[in-house]
């Protein structure tokens, strides 16, 4: 399955709208998009997951990568993550770096 990523920038807030599955094959694409952002200058990174069914550890690691590159006060959120993705984030302790938003 392919992954499409649409990036919306507004002030210091960046929203990445993902569509498809983030697995070991597609996670590098997400990582590449994140690498190309000026992460240090972003105050809030939103990862919109409404159209994502599955996110592998590689995908979740990409979010941690982003968080580590961003400023201390900055926020990484996943928006509309399904229960399974949320569950994995909580059970593995990654929720300390990533917050949840449900629209």
């Amino acid at each position: 399955m392919t992954l499409t990523i649409q990036s919306i920038e507004e002030n210091q807030i960046v929203t990445l709208v993902l569509q498809g599955d983030v697995d070991t094959k597609t996670a590098p694409e997400l990582l590449e998009v994140l690498t190309n952002l000026k992460l240090k200058e972003i105050s809030h990174l939103k990862i919109e997951l409404t159209a994502v069914n599955f996110m592998s550890s590689a995908g979740l690691r990409a979010l941690i990568f982003a968080k580590q590159k961003m400023g201390h006060e900055s926020i990484v959120s996943v928006v509309n993550a399904n229960e399974e993705i949320k569950d994995v984030i909580i059970k593995t302790g990654l929720s300390t770096a990533v917050s949840f938003i449900n629209n």
């Binding site: 979740l60 994995v88 059970k91 302790g93």
Partner: peptide
């Protein structure tokens, strides 16, 4: 690990300890 199928047992176990 409930996340063993994703290869995330290291994180889940650490979360347990924490």
């Amino acid at each position: 690990a409930s996340t063993g199928k994703f290869g995330m047992q290291v994180d889940e176990f650490k979360q347990l300890v924490k």
